[in-house]
């Protein structure tokens, strides 16, 4: 059996065993999609469901997004088929007290690079079902890849423009936005029960898809995820209008790394840079 087939067998075995043994009552992974190049989230509750699990570089959705769904919360313990970005999102959710780490298990998928999104990615699956604490040391080395210049190539390009050209660039891009909120709804860290974009008493931002409304929406979203976004790219891939959302998210990531020395997704016990008050904060306005 080729190596990849063996890994798939192992993945299915882990999922099947997790359900059979009662360690979890739900495994969320991926099944074959309806068209080539797409994978579909799969919710396994019976051991036999595990036979439909697959994994490849098209499994790009961030499955941690489902952990905050009420239908999923109703399960005592849930396992996720988790490439690194999924695990990072679980870290964020635990850190923000949205998910109880004792109720989550990972079937960790290791890829040679941070994203594991190439079509023919070589992947291996961890030896057993893991808790977040068991998983974390096995991925700590990927932290080094988070801030490589290649990751910020698109950001650098935007930064190199004059402010006038930058405005034009974003005006053109935001104009495409149809306010479908797919970016928000696939984002594991966009879990607010009532998003600020949906509030109308009082209304904070225009709901209309006008230039003003679109700027407000896309900027508010990027700001609210600053220091929290784990750089999975799910939002940008979900966007039906191909907005370059990662330009904004990565810019925020870069600023947070420079100013606070912080990269999200590695330490569930870390203080979140933008919501933590420190008495010795050097900024005057905060006191």
């Amino acid at each position: 059996m080729p190596a990849e087939g063996r890994q798939l067998e192992k993945l299915r075995h882990l999922a099947r065993h997790a359900l059979e043994s009662g360690a979890v009552s739900l495994v969320i992974g991926f099944a074959e999609g309806t068209v080539p190049g797409r994978a579909a989230p799969l919710f396994c509750t019976a051991p036999a469901d595990a036979d439909r699990l697959i994994f490849d570089g098209y499994c790009t959705l961030n499955l941690a997004n489902y952990l905050t769904r009420p239908e999923v919360r109703a399960h005592q313990t849930v396992a996720l088929v988790a490439r690194h970005a999924v695990a990072k999102a679980v870290v964020g959710l635990v850190q923000e007290s949205q998910v109880d780490p004792t109720r989550v298990r990972l079937i960790a998928i290791h890829c040679p690079d941070l994203d594991g999104l190439q079509q023919d990615v070589a992947w291996t699956v961890a030896d057993g079902l893991q808790t977040l604490d068991e998983f974390l040391p096995t991925a700590a080395h990927l932290h080094d890849q988070e801030l490589t210049p290649e990751r910020f190539a698109a950001v650098a390009q935007v930064e190199s423009k004059s402010s006038h050209d930058r405005w034009d660039h974003f005006a053109r891009e935001f104009d495409k936005c149809i306010k479908c909120y797919a970016c928000r709804n696939v984002c594991p860290l966009c879990y607010c029960e009532r998003c600020i974009a949906d509030k109308n008493q009082p209304q904070w931002i225009d709901t209309s898809s006008t230039q003003r409304g679109n700027f407000a929406w896309n900027i508010v979203r990027a700001f609210h995820l600053a220091g929290r976004c784990i750089d999975c790219g799910a939002c940008e891939r979900a966007c039906p209008m191909d907005l370059p959302l990662m330009e904004l998210n990565r810019k925020m990531k870069k600023v947070v790394a420079e100013r606070f020395g912080y990269v999200a997704g590695y330490d569930p016990k870390a203080d979140l840079p933008l919501v933590t008050f420190k008495k010795d904060d050097p900024e005057e306005f905060i006191k």
Binding site: C180, A182, N185
Partner: peptide, 23 residues
């Protein structure tokens, strides 16, 4: 698995639902 976004309805030529807002 549906995340409840507006993708499917907004790209659809026949979906026609709208909201009225004062802004």
């Amino acid at each position: 698995r549906c995340v409840g976004c507006g993708c499917c309805t907004f790209v659809c030529p026949t979906c026609h639902c709208f909201d009225l807002v004062d802004e």
